[in-house]
Design a protein around this nucleic acid. Sequence first.
DNA 1: TTAATATTTAGATATTTGTCTAAATATATA
DNA 2: TATATATTTAGACAAATATCTAAATATTAA
Lengths: 84, 84
Amino acid sequence: MNDIFKALNDPTRREILELLKSKDLAAGEIATHFNISKPSISHHLDILKRADLITFEKKGQFIIYSVNTTVMEDVLQWILTFKK
Amino acid sequence: MNDIFKALNDPTRREILELLKSKDLAAGEIATHFNISKPSISHHLDILKRADLITFEKKGQFIIYSVNTTVMEDVLQWILTFKK
DNA sequence: TTAATATTTAGATATTTGTCTAAATATATA
DNA sequence: TATATATTTAGACAAATATCTAAATATTAA
């Protein structure tokens, strides 16, 4: 849970998740959406990976990333405990 | 939204919210639940306040804090956009 | 008014974080 | 094999963060 909130606590990472919401993308394609270097994006992807918020699959020389909605469920449940 | 995720990205602050979920509490009462100095707790409360995740009311020399569930709704909606 | 209690503000410091460039690794293509 | 492309890893650095102690502010009670 700590890793998840940590991962969500960055606008770039949240935007990456929004991008992946509509379409799986390669790391490079993700990077082109931001004015940030590829190594930095790679680092953000790593943090999202550690939080299990994204999954990836190697396709030749590309690495395709997808959002993992099952982890979102955990956050959802936590939030819901505050609704009365 | 940035302020909310920032506020949620700390185990102490999340625990403060959980405490307030069951009962409104004074700043000092909140502080006794942690092995952290009162000024540090005050700082955490300030961050939660800025995110509008808690509200407060002055009662004599005490300041009573409550969780604000309406802001939780915003996070909830954001998370829900990932559920298909 | 003076002393005690509750809380915050100020200032300092060590740790964490986001970013960069340069280099390394892996795969595909000529 | 040699070269180009895709991505990550390593290392450095500035900015943000969580914590502390000491001091300031506000309220209550003697």
